[in-house]
Design a binder for these strands. Structure first.
Lengths: 352, 352
DNA sequence: GTGAAAGCGCTAACAA
DNA sequence: TTGTTAGCGCTTTCAC
């Protein structure tokens, strides 16, 4: 059976040569069999496969990759794994890569540019076949590395800016604008903003910019805002909502725009627990369109960030480029975020 | 600056030799500088570093790993990334590995043994320094591979069974027993069970077994049960709760035990929305202790699975073994799951 | 259909 | 402190 079970003590890892000797077939042919390359007679193929299984041989990809200068790894570099959004992007990436030889390898940056640079460097040192990386904002060094890597690079989530190579995402500015317009159309006037205290979350920033821009055109502005960092987002949503509402009792807010669905859900619960009429007294909206929202007592208005689709499209770009060296570079795919009114944002008062 | 920016067109990836030529220092010494190994004069060190930066050189770990037969990768093989529990395990693993040269590489199995086997094979073919893998149940082939790999293997989450090498986790049987005892002590009698339809989730199964075992000792048994698969767990929790309660109206249930916190949260919301007195009319409990629960209108009783701690301990075992070849193998660490009564499970009626 | 020779880009071990 | 010589385990290439 396996190397460990009996005869041979597990010391030196097995090599092709061991399989070659055990099967009486040359290393080269063993290699061919194991990779399903070239013509090999059924007889030798069987001999080799048997010997390999018998020994418990696991090929050494390090050596293989060095010799062939082909590495079937795709580096995926994202800020975090704990906020529901990136796991969904991963789902999309996996869906596509499962149909290929390519394997995703994930690196986490925690929204820190210098960490991103380090992770990218580590990843590139394994000479992956491609890179999928969140965002368009990177250190100069990171951009230089990606520019010089000579492999397909896909920047995801965001298309408001300059891509190194390809990009797939939504315009967060546009998402912010769209939400602002819906809120204005519904007749809300005193709008509060609640978000994360993350100067480095460029996408949240861009949404905010688009949002305020449209408000300004309607002669409105954010009436008050509240920021948090760390902790249970649901709980923070509650707490911030309570704080911002209490702070504005003399001149009450009539809408709360949350920078993500989780704090939005917390806010919704706070309102419901306190008998606040949503969306009558106050409207609410989040961002992301996480599946989770379906289970809430009332469906939160949100805007879908097309996460799975972004993952899929990004992986497809890489797969295509790996398959065909001459596939076009610099492809930019802008998805359209869709607004879900849920049950916490009134529809437009009157048609335009 | 970088290779791409100007003079040299990005074609062949840069090698040590390029840096060697650019700096007029031997390849060997360049290698030493880049790895901070051995004594190198400050002068040459500077020359080399400058040349490397100038060219935008990124070392080739494939070649390095092959030459040194050292790979600073730790394979982490887990069933899923989308249920809050494994991201937390990852947090623990990262915390520890960040202090070392080691890098985690994650593979996802979707609770499928054959997928696990394939992922393991892929991972081992990169000759990682260690493996952290969820669960104690694997295919025979997978166990053989791990046995023969000659690297530290840590099976995590569960300690009810035989480990290949080391293990860190809780006893899920014990967790089930403990929860059953608390429920019985609180005086509940008609207990419903709600869980996932996942024959391959061995840990859920073991909890269930421990749970029913203790009920049996108290001459009780599960009055009814409900299972789901896929979809929004929160929503499913609601739906299943409604279904199981309606189905038992003539002889009402007084406790619902959920196999995870997310469906438990859905059930809690259902009860609150429908004016059911929790934990008076009916008690509720989940499993996992996810941070998320803090934001609910009422804190759900749960049992902490020690996820971050498990990740930390597993990573520490690997790190120790990598550092010291002769560190002991076969270490088993059993953590104690702690019961959190929250606000949905009454305390014991009277002291024993 | 099969095998032999020559590296892939780096590092261990030794020499200078 | 620095350089030289052999590989690491595979695949490429070319010969048979």
């Amino acid at each position: 059976m396996s190397q460990g079970s009996g005869k041979t003590p597990a010391k030196r890892p097995l090599t092709l040569r061991d399989v070659s000797e055990a099967s009486g077939v040359s290393e080269m042919t063993v290699s061919r069999v194991l990779r399903n390359r070239g013509d090999v007679s059924e007889a030798t193929r069987t001999k080799v496969l048997e010997a390999a299984r018998e020994l418990g041989y696991v090929p050494n990809k390090i050596a293989g990759a060095l010799a062939s200068s082909r590495v079937n790894l795709v580096a995926v570099i994202i800020p975090s794994m704990s906020n529901m959004v990136f796991p969904e992007v991963m789902t999309g990436i996996n869906e596509v890569l499962e149909g290929t030889e390519l394997q995703p390898v994930v690196g986490i940056t925690n929204y820190k540019p210098e960490r991103e640079e380090a992770v990218l460097y580590q990843m590139l040192s394994w000479r992956p076949s491609g890179v999928i990386i969140a965002g368009l904002e990177h250190t100069e060094a990171a951009k230089a590395m990606m520019g010089a890597a000579g492999i397909p690079i896909v920047e995801i989530m965001d298309t408001d800016g300059e891509a190194v190579d390809s990009a797939v995402g939504i315009s967060h500015r546009r998402a912010g604008r769209k939400m602002a317009q819906a809120i204005i159309d519904a007749g809300y006037k005193r709008i509060g903003f609640l978000g994360t205290k993350m100067p480095l979350d460029h996408r949240a920033r861009k949404r905010f910019e688009g949002f305020t821009e449209v408000l300004a055109k309607a002669k409105l502005e954010i009436a008050d805002s509240e920021f948090y960092s760390g902790g249970s987002a649901l709980k923070k949503g509650r707490e911030m909502t309570e704080a911002i509402l209490k702070r504005n009792e003399e001149e009450p807010l009539d809408f709360l725009y949350y920078s993500n669905d989780m704090i939005g859900a917390g806010g919704l619960m706070y309102c419901l627990d306190n008998g606040i009429d949503v969306p009558g007294d106050i409207g609410l909206a989040g961002f992301n369109g996480i599946e989770f929202l379906d289970g809430l007592p009332r469906k939160l208005a949100t805007m879908d960030a097309c996460r799975v689709e972004i993952g899929r499209a990004a992986a497809e770009i890489i797969a295509k480029r790996v398959e065909d060296e001459k596939a076009p570079t610099g492809e930019i795919i802008t998805l359209e975020p869709s607004l879900d009114y849920g049950e916490t944002l009134k529809r437009k008062k009157k048609p335009l």
